[in-house]
Design a binder for these strands. Sequence first.
DNA 1: GATGAATGAGATTTCATTCAT
DNA 2: TATGAATGAAATCTCATTCAT
Lengths: 190, 190, 190, 190
Amino acid sequence: MKLKDDKKIVQIFQAALKLVAKKGLSGVTMGDISREAGIATGTLYVYFKGKDELINALFAACRENSVQVSFKGYNPQLPFKPGFKNIWLNILRYKLQHFEEVIFMEQCYHSPFITAGTREKAQQLSAPFYALMERGQKEQLIKQTDTGLLLIFMLGAMNELVKQTHYSGITLNRSRINSTFDLCWDALKA
Amino acid sequence: MKLKDDKKIVQIFQAALKLVAKKGLSGVTMGDISREAGIATGTLYVYFKGKDELINALFAACRENSVQVSFKGYNPQLPFKPGFKNIWLNILRYKLQHFEEVIFMEQCYHSPFITAGTREKAQQLSAPFYALMERGQKEQLIKQTDTGLLLIFMLGAMNELVKQTHYSGITLNRSRINSTFDLCWDALKA
Amino acid sequence: MKLKDDKKIVQIFQAALKLVAKKGLSGVTMGDISREAGIATGTLYVYFKGKDELINALFAACRENSVQVSFKGYNPQLPFKPGFKNIWLNILRYKLQHFEEVIFMEQCYHSPFITAGTREKAQQLSAPFYALMERGQKEQLIKQTDTGLLLIFMLGAMNELVKQTHYSGITLNRSRINSTFDLCWDALKA
Amino acid sequence: MKLKDDKKIVQIFQAALKLVAKKGLSGVTMGDISREAGIATGTLYVYFKGKDELINALFAACRENSVQVSFKGYNPQLPFKPGFKNIWLNILRYKLQHFEEVIFMEQCYHSPFITAGTREKAQQLSAPFYALMERGQKEQLIKQTDTGLLLIFMLGAMNELVKQTHYSGITLNRSRINSTFDLCWDALKA
DNA sequence: GATGAATGAGATTTCATTCAT
DNA sequence: TATGAATGAAATCTCATTCAT
């Protein structure tokens, strides 16, 4: 008797992401997902109790992934601005490389699938970002406005930028990335 | 003889907006919409050929509405910054007061409902915003970065701000609005 | 106040015939008929209590028409065979010229629309055909087989011939008509 | 694992035939068919993409069946007339025993369900009948009239005879069958 | 565990009929 | 009478989920 197969979960997640990016959350069925993942429909139910659970699990995974990646290489000992820019670039890279996840999370947010619990957990994962901003504020480098406001402002802007970049087919060269960063920095800096 | 009633289209649109905001695009059925609008399901099909057409029409209407409202009171003869702020406030007000439309449009964008044609038309309506930004750039008040980038940056940030505001239940007082505007302006200003 | 308009009934009948010939009885709706007839759907219900009544009335009209036409020019004083051929030609002409009626009646026969009463009346209208055949039998010109059998044989064959002719686009010249008649006559003749 | 079950297709076909014979093509719904076949409505869609496909498939199956049965026991080495009568009897037997198929095919022919392709294929299956008639013509036993005409004449007549027989409740005894055959033969013979 | 046919509740859509004008 | 919008029952079809293999 085989055991549950982690590789299969990855297949399922990737299938779901691809399809949601292409057809939107409301256009994706369990049948679509299984077909795309190369497994039988019934098998989906071996790994997830139902569609809701699948979506919630994927949402949580994406969210976790996005946070984890963001702080790669961040060293709080080093000065703020280069550390901040490092994280900013991590986020940008993540959003560009995992564009499907970005879309998926956006689609989910207002859907009836995501439970309060999942939403809650997602919020909790924001803590390091708040901490980062607060450090900048403490060091007088970042505006003293409401921290959540600043964060949301930055992330919202980045999201839209990434979508725009993706759809317009522009490749972001270094100079374009830098001028984009400057927009963010100028907005936030004290 | 009974005549087709434009008021009924408004009822249908409002019902759809309300429901999509509450349950997400994927959770709303034609039956839900008709019930909420206080008409028979069949009547929906008197006004729209199908669900697709209804969604597309509503999307177009929201988009048009949002643009029209934005430029209310704008006078290109007056200096740039106050005019810009006027528009910024219009947008903010629209997004807050018509929050359901904001959510609806976001939900739609990646759905299988919106056709290429509808997307196209939506894009064309952005022209006045581009013109506004270009004026600011010509007057050396706005960064010389790619105009689309600047716009997207601003609108993405505003969108997220509004969502945050809405869900956190904060009421935006004048000072909070102003500091939010400053974020945008500092980002964009040359 | 206008009175019911006989011309409108003709329009309705013609619309129904045309549509049934094109799309089959199961593909025709009251909306289709009214549109084709150039009147409002509601108006259909001024002239007929419902779809059933409309179909039954049209069926009866077609049936009556087909019989009436068949005996045009028939004089029972004259010898049998030329009289018979005259009728045969009348039937052929009717079926070719009113092909839509032929199709309509065939479609109706096994439909749930036609009531027992309508079917009954249709049967009664066959009496002159029976009489004709019986005369031929009495004069020893026609086989002594069951009269109904002979009739059905002839009419079934003609029906199929007309359909074949119609769909193949062949125009029936005199010689082709004659050889077709010979088939019938040879079958029936004593 | 459950496998698709050919027996289920037979059940579906039989249910559809029975219902169409009873209520006419326009009166039969997918729900009716599934109920009669003893399966869930959704299951119909496992076997057929939609109502159209079901009807077309059934039409094709009936047509094929009717042709196959007709030539059972036919040996082209033997003299023409007994071979012809053998086939004639096969056809008669088929039409009487599979009366529902006869009605179904008639109902379908002018319906919006049958596609041009299906019609085409049905026509191609007529080839052996043409060949048979041509043999009779070559042997100077059958009239030299257009082959299609002769065929259509015979089949149309038989069709109507069978319908008449069925509805009148007459049982065809040998002598009645023979006199019916004589009608056909006298019509066709040179 | 893996499969995919089977299910049936529910979604979309159609359409005969009614009704207000 | 004539109109065509409005209705809602019923038809077609979809799809999350179950189940037999």
